[in-house]
Design a protein around this nucleic acid. Sequence first.
DNA 1: AAATGCATGTAACGCGTTACATGATTTT
DNA 2: AAAATCATGTAACGCGTTACATGCATTT
Lengths: 200, 200
Amino acid sequence: MSALRYRSSRYAILGLLSLAPMSGYEIRKVASSSIGHFWSESYGQIYPTLRELVAEGLVRPLSRRGRAGRNRQEYEIRDKGREVLGGWRSERPKAQPPRNELLLKLFFGERGSIADHLAHVQHVLTSETDRLDRYRHLEEQIRRKWREHSSRPFWLMTVSYGRHLSEALIQWSQEAVSSLRREAATRSRRQSPRVRKRAR
Amino acid sequence: MSALRYRSSRYAILGLLSLAPMSGYEIRKVASSSIGHFWSESYGQIYPTLRELVAEGLVRPLSRRGRAGRNRQEYEIRDKGREVLGGWRSERPKAQPPRNELLLKLFFGERGSIADHLAHVQHVLTSETDRLDRYRHLEEQIRRKWREHSSRPFWLMTVSYGRHLSEALIQWSQEAVSSLRREAATRSRRQSPRVRKRAR
DNA sequence: AAATGCATGTAACGCGTTACATGATTTT
DNA sequence: AAAATCATGTAACGCGTTACATGCATTT
């Protein structure tokens, strides 16, 4: 694509503004909490994008009476913005090309130290366990706090996605730990076959 | 990071060359088959990177007697290349920041058409089902064909990762289909409450 | 008055894909 | 001889993060 690619950041920002008017700073904060589990957005994208959106008439800067007397500029989505957002939403979502460093390291792992691999996999195990915990809390919060909000089922679906993925990763990493241990045993046996009996 | 980022492409390429000498074209092909499930690499990266690797003495161009008389240039990893690869492998793998368009669309889905969302989710369901099938085949192939290869356990781990993920996504998408149907029912009930009885 | 933190904004990179250009070698 | 396809290579983008610069408002 020489001309345009997906420009998903625009839609992420537009989407957040469709929930409520916000400043760039807030967009960053809200993004990292609400959609942070499956999306990331940085200042370097947000501020320039906001300008673009204003220039295209999808978003409007609000007069600066923002409750805090702070030096902040809030933006509000316009009808045209909602239309554009709707059009984007109905197109088939693009998957980002896969790039998983962990698997890359494992794939070329034959000559590496098992201890290193174990450390990597165990890190996945602990971090996904934490993450799963957060998903559970989050889910409960959404169930309690947004009992009547019409977005609730959608939000729950995104959390559930994360939950399923974390559970899968936890399972995988447990299995991977076992294989790596087995592999370590095989290696040491290959190095010193006489000691084999000692192992048990 | 103003200076350098991860430069994972270098290591992906170096890793492939650690398995066997290859040309740039082959690297592309091998990559999309072997590590294609969790990694992607394009020509625009491969050729320039090969030059860099040669310049740094990590890789050596082979004399052009490649069995095919073709106009091709093969490269071979050097000892220094293996060292560098080993160093990289023992560092903790970096996770790429999450960017999931599907979830983004669902999250802002409240005003969208349920039919669109259903189509997106069902696409996940079918494509992950296919993928799972491919993983099963691949796993069986590795078990049969590489019975004695010392990389076998590592390769199996990467396939297993994919399998677990696909299984989780299949489960999730089935659940999501149900929620979306429920949501559609709720909506139509809300629109025309009198027709409620007709529905059953 | 100094320190802290809120808030906006931009420059410099690095990463990666896509699309195109080019030519050699097989195949038909 | 024409078509297909193997193979290398590069230019132009778009995407995104990081790091820095700046200044106002609030807290201490």
